[in-house]
Computed example of a mutant assay.
Amino acid sequence: MRILHLRRAAATGAVVLIALGTAATPAFAFAGRANAKVSVVHGIPGQPVDVYVNGEKTIEGFEPGKVAGPLSLAAGQYDIALTKPGDAIGDALLTVNDADVPGDANISLVAHLGEDGKPVLTPFVNDTAKLAAGKARLIVRHTAAAPAVDVRAAGSPVFEGLTNPKEAKADVDAGSISADVVLAGTDTRVLGPADLDLKEGTATIVYAVGSAEAKTLDIVAQTISGLHSAPGGVPSGDGGQADQGVALPWYGVGAAGILLMMAGLARFARGRRVVAGR
């Protein structure tokens, strides 16, 4: 099996993958930096993964369509590998060595299909700016193997011509909306409609994932709360919570490590597709 190898580049940007395990953060690393808040979105259909940190398996069978986190994570350096469930670490789908973990950031890492249908890892820095009273933030991210799309609310285009792996966002009135996704410039629906509850003081992030060709397109949603600007607003807490996700599991008594992946993304080596059935 071909190994995808992502090496740490210059300190520009970040990719972060998290899990709880047995790896420890160097006490001297990144002293004085605030912790990063990190969530993980698994958007590769049909491909659960096992996750290794510093050679130790820390998560088994992380399932597609789930959101893990967020966690408040200390900065540091780690070696990470992702494998198909049960595979040896030498047959990893993806490895990264000496991965730096930055502080002072709210990041979502999305494992998804690129426009060509091959698996990629894309980091998004989440907009956590405060919202005016009565407002919510809607963020749409195109992370599917599909052509350009328009995102509509109540039948009217809100974001147009969105391509993989781009995002679009707007601060809107809080409330419930019905949204769908159509091929750009057409009325051909490829996703939805889906009812979204845009609560005041929150950012709702909607990911289009899967493959149009394989008919596995789906929606995964993540919510970041605590963005009220008015006094008495909800505290920011850990920086967000997953609407359609799962809490990251603990493996082993006293496990307190983390699994993180990040790099400058100056280059990303892509390998064979890992979607089941292709």
Rank of each mutant, 00 (worst) to 15 (best):
Gly245Trp: 06
Ala146Ile: 01
Thr202Asp: 10
Arg267Ala: 09
Gln222Thr: 07
Pro235Gly: 06
Glu115Asn: 07
Ala34Arg: 12
His42Ala: 01
Ala266Asp: 14
Pro231Phe: 07
Gly114Gln: 01
Ser39Ala: 15
Gly240Asn: 04
Phe268Asp: 03
Asn106Val: 14
Glu160Ala: 14
Asp173Lys: 10
Ala88Ser: 12
Arg189Leu: 08
Leu4Glu: 13
Ile44Ala: 00
Gly257Asp: 11
Ala276Met: 06
Pro157Arg: 12
Ala14Asn: 04
Ala146Asp: 02
Ala168Asp: 09
Ala148Ser: 08
Ala68Val: 05
Lys166Asp: 14
Gln77Leu: 09
Arg189Phe: 10
Thr202Gln: 10
Gly65Val: 05
Pro157Asp: 11
Ile18Trp: 08
Asn106Cys: 09
Asp195Glu: 08
Lys166Ile: 00
Gly232Ala: 07
Val49Pro: 00
Asp173Thr: 03
Asp100Gly: 08
Lys84Thr: 06
Leu259Gly: 15
Gly232Cys: 10
Ala256Leu: 15
Thr58Cys: 13
Asp180Ile: 05
Ile258Ala: 14
Val38Gln: 10
Leu183Pro: 11
Leu260Arg: 10
Ala144Asn: 04
Asp173Cys: 02
Ser229Asp: 12
Val275Thr: 02
Leu183Asp: 04
Ala194Arg: 12
Lys66Leu: 13
Val209Gly: 04
Pro70Arg: 01
Leu73Lys: 10
Asp243Gly: 10
Gly271Cys: 01
Met262Ala: 15
Tyr207Asp: 09
Phe62Met: 12
Lys169Tyr: 04
Leu265Ser: 02
Ser236Ile: 15
Ala111Pro: 00
Ile139Gln: 07
Thr186Ile: 01
Arg7Met: 09
Ala194Lys: 14
Glu213Asp: 13
Ile139Tyr: 00
Asp150Ile: 13
Val151Ile: 13
Gly161Glu: 02
Ala184Leu: 02
Gln241Thr: 13
Arg137Leu: 03
Arg189Pro: 12
Leu121Phe: 14
Gly192Ser: 06
Thr58Lys: 14
Ala133Cys: 00
Ala111Gly: 03
Val209Ile: 15
Asp116Lys: 03
Asp87Pro: 00
